[in-house]
Write a protein that binds this DNA or RNA. Structure first.
Length: 534
RNA sequence: GGGUUUGUAGCUCAGUCGGUAGAGCAGCGGCCUUUUAAGCCGUUGGUCGUGGGUUCGAGUCCCACCAAACCCA
């Protein structure tokens, strides 16, 4: 901590020479006040005063109710008293009286009216700075401008803010525009931008609604392993770590899939997990290395049943935060999260976007199977993959994905890209799988589960050979999972939904960073010297 | 990894053709006993992202680097 100043708290001019910056000067002044309060026997970080009321629960919280409050000169001697606490955000001073604006939980605001004849409180108010926490006690009245105010009869400082706020919290317009700063100092960002917390509240509502949805249907919530010695369930590179006592290399899970299916084998016919997963890949508006998914599995269901379930779930989550199923997302107006969503096969969608593609109208023909990779190479160039399945997906990603603004179930994925899905009974080159796309982004991934242990072994072997030929996102061979399947897994369908992207959609957030309190950033550089050394 | 844009006071931003760094808010000192996210007077605060270069002279022009945002891969 810095040195304790010995000079009077009201003579800031004597320190200007030592000030390295305006900010340091302001912080020094605030520390002086702390010292001065301590010397006069007051605790600048008191914890012996509790509010009797939350600001959001006070009477006349709505403007049309303010008329029920008395004017100040009409206040009865026995008018009810309220002790409320909050952060000081604004002071309007007018000589021997002042208005103080404080904010409590849920962003609720209250203005306090303080007159000079409340001597002790008035003296304290001159020691307050924006950002401080205070507790005020007194009756409520209606001002001449028909606003609710609490007349201060006593005032306490609860916690002194040493660091000043970065902007004027209550002003209109931009306060801080440096996005990097906003994410790094989210705590301060939230003070001046209360709408940030609104998104987090909505996120909590969405998660609560999802949990309720599955609980109502008899699903069991489980927390499975995050630390694994073989990793699978998705195409992604994991984070590596090490367990010292076991001297064991482990990785952080990239999906919850395999453990949840083990639980289905064990008899949990309906099971789900809402949890954090970790993928060692780049950052973008839609990617954070740690993010939250829900995966759920239901025995005796098919991926088609899950489409119905998903429609109902999304409708409900949307209504819970927006009160309607039709929403706007950024530049996309009128996104309708209302049953039924469109259902189409990936082949059908590619054919629509590229009518010249050699894709058959009905089921996939041998001619199509043979011709598509060549077609992909002719339109995508050398980056086009050689096999049918990867080529189809590449065409889908290039020509279709972005156009799927309204919710669309994309069905029948190629087997090569779906190592955990059950093969289609009519055509084993495809699997019983869908992904749900909204606003051009994948929101959910679901399939009827592969429960044939020998087929699963073959798929893992394929993954291993893909890994050997350089695919760092291929899965590990999970022998224990195959052993589990050998005990028999009922016919099951399962699905994963990206919670962060869902929250983005339902709160009209442009970046995943806006729905995650502390998104991943580069380490903060603390000094120019460090920059030079790089 | 590539492209575009940005970086000036605690915050939001100006800064013209290269010629002594500005405003509003916050802070500080005054005035004001019902303000509206006040009003009025005064005032502190700057290594112009960092480092080099061109120039008599660089916030401004050039180069490199750092950081961020967006787009692309």
């Amino acid at each position: 901590m810095s040195t304790v100043p010995t000079s009077s708290p009201h003579s800031p001019n004597d320190s200007t020479q030592a000030d390295k910056s305006d900010l340091e000067g302001q912080m020094r002044d605030r520390r002086r006040i702390i010292e001065s309060l301590r010397q006069s026997g007051q605790n600048p970080f008191a914890n012996d005063a509790r509010p009797t009321h939350q600001i959001y629960a006070l009477p006349a919280s709505r403007q049309e109710e303010v008329a029920s409050l008395p004017l100040e000169n009409e206040l009865a001697a026995d008018a009810p008293r309220y002790a409320v606490a909050g952060r000081l955000l604004q002071v309007n001073e007018m000589g021997k009286a002042k208005f103080l604006f404080i904010r409590g939980d849920r962003g609720a605001m209250l203005q306090l009216y303080l007159k000079a004849d409340v001597v002790e409180a008035f003296a304290l108010s001159n020691q307050l700075g924006l950002g401080d926490f205070v507790l005020a006690q007194g009756p409520l009245f209606r001002t001449r401008k028909d606003k609710r105010a609490l007349r201060i009869e006593s005032l306490r400082l609860l916690s002194k803010a040493v660091r000043p706020l970065p902007g004027k919290a209550l002003q209109d317009g931009p306060k801080v525009t440096d996005e990097d700063w906003r994410y790094r100092q989210r705590y301060a960002d939230m003070i001046v931008h209360p709408e940030v917390a609104d998104v987090f509240r909505k996120r909590a509502t969405i998660v609560r609604e999802i949990r309720r949805f599955f609980d109502e249907r008899g699903y069991v919530e489980c927390d499975t392993r995050m630390l694994l010695s073989t990793n699978g369930g998705a195409a992604a590179r994991p984070f590596r770590t090490h367990h010292n006592a076991l001297d064991l290399d482990l990785s952080l899970r990239i999906a919850t899939e395999l453990d949840l299916k083990r639980l289905v084998v064990g008899g949990l016919d309906r099971v789900y997990e809402i949890g954090r997963i970790f993928r060692n890949e780049g950052l973008s508006r839609f990617h954070n290395p740690e993010f939250t998914t829900i995966e759920f599995y239901e025995a005796y269901a098919t991926y088609e049943n899950l489409m119905d379930l998903t429609e109902e779930l999304l409708e409900r989550a949307c209504v819970a935060v927006n009160g309607t199923t039709t929403i706007d997302y950024q530049e996309h107006q009128g996104v309708r999260l209302q049953r039924p969503f469109r259902r189409a096969t990936m082949r059908q969608l590619v054919k629509e976007a590229r009518p010249d593609a050699p894709i058959a109208d009905g089921a996939c023909t041998d001619a199509e199977y043979a011709a598509l990779p060549g077609y992909a190479r002719s339109v995508l160039g050398d980056k086009a993959p050689s096999g049918y399945g990867h080529a189809l997906v590449a065409l889908f990603e290039e020509f279709v994905e972005k156009s799927l603004v309204q919710p669309t179930f994309v069905c029948e994925f190629p087997t090569e890209v779906s190592p955990l899905s059950r093969r289609n009974d009519r055509d084993p080159r495809f699997v019983d799988r869908f992904e749900l796309f909204v606003i051009g982004k994948e929101l959910a991934n679901a399939f009827s589960e592969l429960n044939d242990p020998d087929d699963q072994r073959a798929r893992f072997e394929q993954q291993v050979s893909q890994k050997a030929s350089g695919d760092q996102e291929a899965m590990d061979y999970d022998e224990d999972f195959c052993r589990a399947l050998e005990y028999g897994m009922p016919p099951t369908a399962g699905e994963g939904i990206g919670i962060d992207r869902l929250v983005m959609l339902l709160t009209n957030s442009a970046s995943i960073r806006d729905v995650i309190p502390f998104p991943q950033l580069r380490p903060e550089t603390t000094s120019p010297a460090e920059n030079e050394s790089k």
